[in-house]
């Protein structure tokens, strides 16, 4: 009788678990991008700083021409291992619109660490007008905002190929097997040697894609390392406390049984 109940309960929990996992994961479409091994995967994962810094270079030299990252400030880059002077220097390379000054005029000034990443376009309409009517999405949360996360972003950047026969690719579009609907407005952004690395890393397409994805993963979840570090401590603490509570419960109930 008792055993029977336990089995029933376990079956019920398993079913609930099954539905919970099936729910959010459902409704994938197109080819699912293959899983990659990322430095930030797993319970103890951290962002590969060198890769993320190279990824920032790729963003700056390639992506930033069209894509904004307006949730990030230059000061956030210090988390990637840039020191204060480097952050200031990076910020100073951009022009930021400020004002009004005492005459009521807007003016341009060099960027400061507290400034947000400067957007390539003044507004969404300007962005659409320059890109065949399609607004290039903001990249701040890209790995969180797509099913498949980092694997999808990497897959997309490396997933350009010739359209299979019978598929017509309209002007200004490209064929990408991982994109929903397969026709993507973004031309292949990366190629071998798209960016010249200063640390001697071989500038292949795959390397660029890996680096920019690491950078974007950090940009989307800058709290991830702190979160995982704290998580271990919290869970260990809770395990100990729960163990003690169980012992207390046993002790209290002992004289009843």
């Amino acid at each position: 009788m008792h055993m029977n109940k336990i089995i029933k309960s376990l079956v019920a929990l398993a079913l609930v678990g099954g539905v919970l996992t099936a729910g959010p994961a459902g409704a994938a479409e197109g080819t699912r991008a293959p899983k990659q091994s990322w430095s930030f995967n797993g319970l103890f994962g951290t962002f590969d700083r060198a890769a993320a810094q190279r990824g920032f270079q790729v963003y700056k030299e390639v992506c930033a021409g069209c894509h904004s990252m307006n949730l990030l400030s230059y000061r956030h880059l210090s988390q990637l291992g840039f020191n204060e002077e480097e952050v200031k220097a990076i910020a100073a390379t951009v022009e930021v619109k400020d004002g009004p000054d005492s005459d009521g005029e807007m003016f341009d000034r060099p960027g400061l660490p507290a400034d947000r990443f400067v957007s390539p376009f003044a507004n969404a309409n300007a962005a659409a007008a320059s890109n065949n009517g399609k607004v290039p999405p903001d990249l701040s949360l890209m790995t969180k905002a797509r099913i498949g996360g980092a694997d999808y972003v990497y897959g997309l950047l490396t997933g350009y190929e010739d359209a299979p026969s019978g598929v017509e690719v309209p002007d200004g579009g490209s064929y990408n097997k991982y994109f929903s609907g397969q026709i993507i407005a973004m031309a292949p952004p990366l190629s071998d040697e798209a960016v010249e690395y200063t640390d001697g890393t071989k500038p292949t397409l795959a390397q660029h894609a890996k680096d920019i994805t690491t950078f974007l993963a950090w940009a989307a979840e800058p709290e991830m390392e702190a979160r995982k570090r704290m998580g271990i401590k919290v869970l260990l603490f809770l395990l100990v406390l729960t163990g003690m509570l169980y012992a207390v419960k046993r002790k209290v109930w002992e004289d009843l049984h």
Partner: peptide
Amino acid sequence: FFGMGVFMIFYMFFVFYAPNFFGEPDNYIP
């Protein structure tokens, strides 16, 4: 209290290691 301990382990696992498990990626698009 013992039940709360077990439940908090379950809850905190999601908070720290799968915080977006119950969410939808689309909600990170404005």
